[in-house]
């Protein structure tokens, strides 16, 4: 048995192989030394703004209640290209229902976790994921992928909180260290709040925030996608 071979008896579901293949294709186009971000233009790149609602804040134990995502291309949010999934629940915490308004077996059409992941990966493809505190959302999806015995998400991610902080002058150090909730971010950017705590509504607010932030960062019109990933 060779060192680098995986066990032959394990076969992956097609959506996962497709997901991986798309990344491999993109990488091969970029070349061995190149980055997939090279030459990506801001106004043609498809960004997926992403939000999940969960039963709690422990990404390992808690489960996904809903997934909402919208796409942003050239500052435009397309409703036709959006995703809104509600998941069937095994673990259910009544206290979180109050915040999220998603009742167990509510009147929504529901999918199981496996289907949700499949639809979600199909929707996001190799696009860059945007989210507010996206680390948590990615961890939650990764936990679900792990339960399905699959690997982790391979998409690049951008956090709107980190991006927003680039707008704050370094001299305001205290603000640099501040944590912003989505509500606070929306308030700072003067975005009207409605539909908080539905994943699709949060995704829409995050998308508008993302567009606003990028416009401010791009005041001279020369910003590239790659520069968005620059570390401060």
């Amino acid at each position: 048995m060779g060192l680098f071979t995986t066990s032959p008896q394990r076969s992956f579901p097609p959506f996962w192989t497709q997901y991986l293949a798309a990344f491999a294709r993109e990488k091969s186009q970029a070349g061995f030394l190149g980055s997939t971000l090279d030459g990506k233009k801001l106004d043609t790149t498809r960004f997926v703004v992403f939000d999940t609602e969960t039963t709690g804040l422990h990404y390992k134990e808690d489960r996904i209640l809903s997934i909402g995502a919208v796409t942003v291309i050239n500052n435009e949010i397309s409703i036709a290209q959006s995703l809104e999934l509600y998941l069937k629940q095994d673990i259910y915490k009544p206290e979180s229902a109050k915040i999220h308004g998603i009742l167990r077996n509510g009147s929504y059409e529901q999918v199981n976790e496996q289907e949700a992941i499949e639809k979600c990966l199909e929707f996001i493809g190799t696009n860059i994921l945007i989210g507010h505190h996206i680390g948590f959302d990615v961890a939650v999806i990764n936990a679900a992928l792990k339960r399905a015995q699959l690997g982790k998400l391979k998409n690049r991610v951008l956090d709107t909180e980190t991006l927003y902080k680039r707008l704050v002058h370094p001299i305001n150090r205290s603000l640099q260290e501040k944590r912003y909730t989505l509500d606070e971010l929306a308030e700072a950017l003067k975005i009207p709040l409605h539909d908080r705590h539905t994943s699709a509504g949060d995704a829409l607010i995050t998308a508008i925030a993302f567009i606003k932030i990028v416009k401010r960062l791009n005041s001279d019109g020369s910003l590239t996608v790659k520069q968005l990933f620059r570390k401060n």
């Binding site: 500052n75 435009e76 949010i77 397309s78 409703i79 036709a80 829409l204 998308a207 508008i208 567009i211 606003k212 416009k215």
Partner: peptide, 11 residues
């Protein structure tokens, strides 16, 4: 028709 809408932000 709303499901075919999109949202546009302008400075």
């Amino acid at each position: 028709i709303c499901s075919q809408a999109s949202v546009l932000y302008l400075d």
